[in-house]
C-alpha cells in the first residue's frame, strides 16, 4: 500500500515566542524548530503499516527551506522519500491554501492512506486534514487513538476519543486519518537510519510544477486574515501561602475561593 504522511515543522513547545513589532507575526530567528509532535505518531503509524503490509511511504511537507530538517528526521525514522512543497508563493497560506497545495502534491501519488497529525501545535487548528479530505473527496477519521487494518487491506477500524468515551469508526480507503497520542510510541531515528536518510530523495515542488495558480495559495488567497497577535494579558500575582500550618493555609484558600473569587 502507498501511505502519505503530511508533516509540518513547528516551533518546539518550549520555544520562547516573541511578537514582531508590527504584531503581524512572531520573531522566527531564535526558534528551535521540530517535527510537529502529533506528526511523529503519523510517521510511526506509516512505518508500522509498511512493516506489516509492505508498500511505500512518502512524507509531504509545505514550508520554507528549514522544513527539510524535519523531513530528514522522518526519513531517518524510516520513511522512503519526501516531497517538499517549496515556493515563496505558498507562504502565509491559510488552512485552505495549505490543503490545496498538499492535495496538488498528493493526488499524483494516488495513496491508499493519508496520515496527518491531530493538529499542528503552533496554531492548534486541526483544519488542514479535513479540508484536504474534502478536496480529495476522501473520508476522514480524526483523533485516531487505535487503528486496525481490515482483512481486505482496503479499510480500517479506528477508535477515536470523544467526550465521555470512544467512537469506533470503520473507514474505506483511500482515507485521511489524523493521529492522536496513544496510537503508538514513535521510534527514535537510529544512527544507520540517519546515514541512510541523507541519500533519500526529497523532491522539491514549486507552484508551477504543482499545477496550482498564485490565486490558490499564499496570503492573497487566504480566506482567514490575521488582524494582529496579542501578548498574554498580565495576570495579577497570585496569593501563595507557605510555611504555615496546613489547616490554616487550606482554610484561607477555601475562604478566598468563596469570598474573593466567588467560585464555590
Amino acid at each position: 500500500m502507498k501511505i502519505v504522511v503530511c508533516l509540518k515543522q513547528t516551533p518546539d513547545t518550549e520555544a520562547t515566542i516573541k511578537l514582531t513589532a508590527d504584531k503581524q507575526g512572531i520573531e522566527e530567528q531564535n526558534i528551535k524548530w521540530v517535527m510537529n509532535p502529533y506528526d511523529e505518531y503519523a510517521v510511526e503509524q506509516a512505518l508500522r503499516l509498511k512493516e506489516k503490509h509492505g508498500g511505500e511511504t512518502v512524507v509531504v511537507c509545505m514550508g520554507p527551506d528549514r522544513v527539510t530538517e524535519a523531513m530528514r528526521t522522518a526519513l531517518a525514522m524510516g520513511m522512503d522519500k519526501g516531497v517538499h512543497l517549496k515556493d515563496d508563493a505558498f507562504a502565509h497560506s491559510d488552512a485552505t491554501g495549505t490543503a490545496k497545495a498538499l492535495a496538488a502534491a498528493i493526488k499524483p501519488l494516488s495513496p491508499d492512506l493519508i496520515l496527518c497529525g491531530r493538529q499542528a501545535i503552533d496554531w492548534d487548528m486541526a483544519q488542514v486534514p479535513a479540508i484536504l479530505a474534502e478536496l480529495l473527496d476522501m473520508p476522514q477519521v480524526t483523533v485516531v487513538a487505535k487503528m486496525e487494518m481490515g482483512a481486505d487491506g482496503k479499510s480500517a477500524v479506528c477508535n477515536r476519543r470523544i467526550e465521555g468515551g470512544e467512537e469506533v469508526v470503520e473507514v474505506k480507503f483511500p482515507a485521511v486519518l489524523t493521529c492522536d497520542k496513544g496510537l503508538n510510541e514513535p521510534r527514535y531515528a537510529s544512527l544507520p537510519g540517519i546515514m541512510k536518510a541523507k541519500k533519500k530523495e526529497i523532491k522539491p515542488l514549486g507552484l508551477a510544477e504543482s499545477g496550482l495558480s498564485a490565486n490558490d495559495v499564499g496570503k492573497a488567497s487566504s480566506k482567514v486574515q490575521i488582524l494582529e497577535y496579542l501578548p498574554l494579558p498580565e495576570r495579577p500575582p497570585g496569593k501563595v501561602f507557605k510555611e504555615q500550618e496546613t489547616p490554616d493555609m487550606v482554610k484561607q484558600v477555601v475562604k478566598l475561593l468563596r469570598e474573593e473569587a466567588k467560585i464555590i
Partner: peptide
C-alpha cells in the same frame, strides 16, 4: 470546538469555500 465540532467545521468550511477560525 468539541470533538464533533472540530471534526465537522473544517469539512463544512471546505464545502462552503469560506474561512474558519478554530478554538
Amino acid at each position: 470546538a468539541s470533538t464533533m465540532g472540530k471534526d465537522l467545521s473544517p469539512r463544512v468550511c471546505a464545502k462552503l469555500a469560506t474561512g474558519l477560525s478554530s478554538d
